[in-house]
């Protein structure tokens, strides 16, 4: 039984096909990176996994259960044990850092004392304890990113989806946060599905790389396989 399984999944926006016949198995604890240019359908695949939209055709299984199929979302997003870091981070600007984390725990019915403990633990994990009572708009890009990560992880999700979360950061900060994400994944053990268009970022984070082109899977393999794929692609372009 695969931890996550997408079987012949397609998604259309009106007449345009965004994802075509997408099939992928992901095992528990893997770090899978979806790599490809803008508009190739990476974010759509993440949103389909999260249950934020239904596939036009095909099926998605989570933990062995059918979660979405043929235009229907069977397992609601809130029941999927998924955390997500959006590209724009989606931090609620009217709540403080602590408020952002607490809101999630309240929704899960976590008692107050437990909430306090988990918030302080999570903030310390991402080195943001001193910013608990600050609103997100007052934080730097890197700090906001860490808060978004903390918020996504505070409910102890089994799967973490990250949609180009580091794309707006400078190289050094990007590198530091990549390291932090890998450390957290090793420590907590969630399954990570990470979307990026940056090859170096993909090779650094992913234990498996899925290259996407025009809504389809072009290649699945290791970083070396991905590099070989790009070399072939470039020679084909040069020859043409």
């Amino acid at each position: 039984m695969a931890f996550i399984e997408l079987k012949n999944v397609s998604k259309r926006y009106g007449k345009r096909l965004a994802v075509v016949d997408f099939t992928l198995h992901i095992d528990e604890g893997e770090r899978v990176v979806l790599l490809g240019p803008s508009g190739c359908g990476k974010t759509t695949v993440l949103r389909l996994m999260a249950g934020l939209m239904a596939p036009y055709s095909g099926s998605i299984y989570l933990y062995g259960e059918l979660a979405s199929t043929d235009g229907k979302v069977l397992m609601q997003p809130e029941s999927r044990h998924i955390g997500m870091v959006f590209q724009d981070l989606a931090l609620w600007p009217h709540l403080t850092v602590k408020g952002n984390l607490e809101f999630v725990l309240k929704a899960k019915g976590v008692p107050r004392s437990e909430r306090e403990r988990r918030i302080s633990e999570m903030l310390s994990l991402v080195s943001m304890e001193e910013f608990a009572y600050v609103k997100p708009t007052r934080l730097s890009g890197g700090q906001q990113q860490r808060v978004a990560l903390a918020r996504a992880l505070i409910s102890h999700p089994r799967i973490l989806l990250m949609d180009e979360p580091l794309s707006n950061l400078d190289f050094e900060l990007n590198l530091r946060l990549r390291r932090q994400i890998i450390r957290l994944q090793n420590r907590i053990g969630f399954t990570l599905i990470y979307v990026t268009h940056d090859r170096e970022e993909a090779y650094d984070i992913g234990t498996r790389i899925v290259i996407m082109r025009n809504g389809r899977i072009a290649m699945v393999g290791s970083a070396d396989d991905a590099e070989a794929y790009f070399s072939r692609l470039y020679s084909e372009i040069d020859d043409a």
């Binding site: 934020l52 959006f86 981070l89 989606a90 409910s155």
Partner: peptide, 27 residues
Amino acid sequence: IPPSMEESARLAGVSWLNRIMQVVVPL
């Protein structure tokens, strides 16, 4: 308001009414 504001609350298991009252309305 970016859709992700409400979607992130939904993924966290926040009910629709709570999402409206505590995320969408304040924003």
